[in-house]
Simulated assay, not measured.
Amino acid sequence: MGEPEQLFKVIFDLPKRSPTWPPYATEGLWAERVGVDTVRLRNVPFYARGVAFRDTVRVRVDLEREKLVFVERVAESGYSTVRLIVDDAAVAVVEAVLDAADCWWEIDNTGLLWAVGVPPEVDYAALRQELLRLRVEAGIDLEEGVLGGGHRRSDVG
């Protein structure tokens, strides 16, 4: 039996984009250590912008908070982070679209905010078109937190 995986929380300070958003000052993401001051993210961010699942980021120790704190992204994984606002009426159709695209997601404690991990091999242009269709037909909302390199190069216009 192998050693248990050691994961660490990395704190991302969240700048206010409006008086009520984001609703928190920080977000903690799980990560695995890959270097002296670098870690690989192990979950999809709900609020932090500019990072995705499996990205490698530089961290520093914040002695005052006794936490590892995000400094910068040093290597992208190719994954994209997409956030959705989904009400109960749209859950089944959104799940079907994400399942068909081989994406995975986490849902926050309100049940409304979804953090979606889009793997590098997914045709993001096609997925985006489906999500934009659902924006009109099912009333979901969509935000791209960060697009992986292959997804930026795809026809997403």
Score class of each variant (00 low, 15 high):
Glu3Thr: 02
Thr26Gly: 00
Val39Met: 12
Ala48Gly: 12
Val74Cys: 06
Val86Met: 02
Gly145Pro: 03
Leu112Lys: 05
Ala89His: 13
Phe53Thr: 00
Arg65Val: 13
Phe46Met: 03
Ala75Trp: 00
Thr20Trp: 03
Val61Cys: 08
Arg40Met: 10
Gln6Thr: 14
Asp62Ile: 10
Val94Pro: 01
Tyr79Asn: 12
Glu137Tyr: 13
Met1Gln: 08
Met1His: 12
Glu106Lys: 11
Glu3Phe: 05
Leu131Thr: 12
Asn43Lys: 00
Asp37Gln: 15
Leu127Lys: 02
Ala52Cys: 10
Arg83Leu: 06
Ala25Met: 06
Gly145Leu: 02
Glu66Val: 14
Leu112Thr: 09
Leu98Ser: 09
Asp108Ser: 10
Leu98Phe: 11
Gly78Asn: 09
Leu131Ala: 08
Pro119Gly: 03
Phe46Asp: 02
Arg60Lys: 14
Leu132Tyr: 07
Ile107Phe: 05
Val10Ile: 15
Leu142Ile: 15
Leu132Glu: 15
Ala90Cys: 04
Arg54Phe: 06
Val91Asn: 03
Lys16Gly: 10
Lys67Val: 15
Ala48Trp: 06
Phe70Ile: 03
Asp155Ser: 14
Arg17Phe: 09
Arg17Met: 12
Pro22Asn: 10
Gly148Val: 07
Pro4Met: 08
Trp114Arg: 09
Val57Asp: 01
Glu143Val: 15
Ala115Tyr: 00
Gly149Cys: 00
Thr20Glu: 04
Val34Lys: 09
Arg60Val: 12
Trp105Ile: 12
Arg135Phe: 14
Val136His: 08
Ala138Asp: 09
Trp21Arg: 11
